[in-house]
Amino acid sequence: MKFGVVVFPGSNCDHDAYHVISKVIGQPVDFIWHQATSLEGYDAVILPGGFSYGDYLRAGAIARFSPIMRAVTSFAATGGLVLGICNGFQILCESGLLPGALLPNRTMKFVCQFVHVRVEATDTPFTHLYERGQILSLPIAHGEGNYYCDAETLERLRRENRILLRYCDEQGRVTEEANPNGSLDNIAGICNRQRNVFGLMPHPERAAEEALGGADGRILFHSMAMALAELAQD
């Protein structure tokens, strides 16, 4: 089992992701430079948070044309696990691997705080170790996290149970007040139809150890590792 963390110019959560995979869940992991053209030998790829290419044009818009993204697209098509965190989620949307787009926050403010999110679906390699309805405390840190898609796409996401995380309050109520950025339907994370590509705005890698204020995010990485281990046994 091997993880890869893609490094774009301007990524700044790449080392956090690397640390969690190598030290917290103890799995092999490499950094992958954005100029690389192959993902051979990898089982899971993380597109980390940050400000790839300075968020020029639109967040994630330039990173999408990096050579590695062609490899990520075919990797995803063959069932490889792809996790996009924050800027990684923006890149996945820009590249069309996930539907919709992330607009500037409703308030126009950069939001950096812990929020609550509710786990809405557990039938994915990323969330199967959580319980449905479980309330997680995870940090967000973004200026453009306001998820948007057209009505038809939203209907499809709901029908196919592809909204994996929603912003909620401490009691798990999905309310307007608990929505930190104006996201449609309080969406904090969605997956693709095949359920092997997951993008989310919160940072699970920043909440994977109690010493850092919470460990709710660690389970996500354990889920991925266990899903890959089970796959390897089949």
Binding site: R58, A61, F65, C93, G100, A101, C149, D150
Partner: peptide
Amino acid sequence: EVLSNPVI
């Protein structure tokens, strides 16, 4: 392809 995002 580049300058706009047709979704938005």
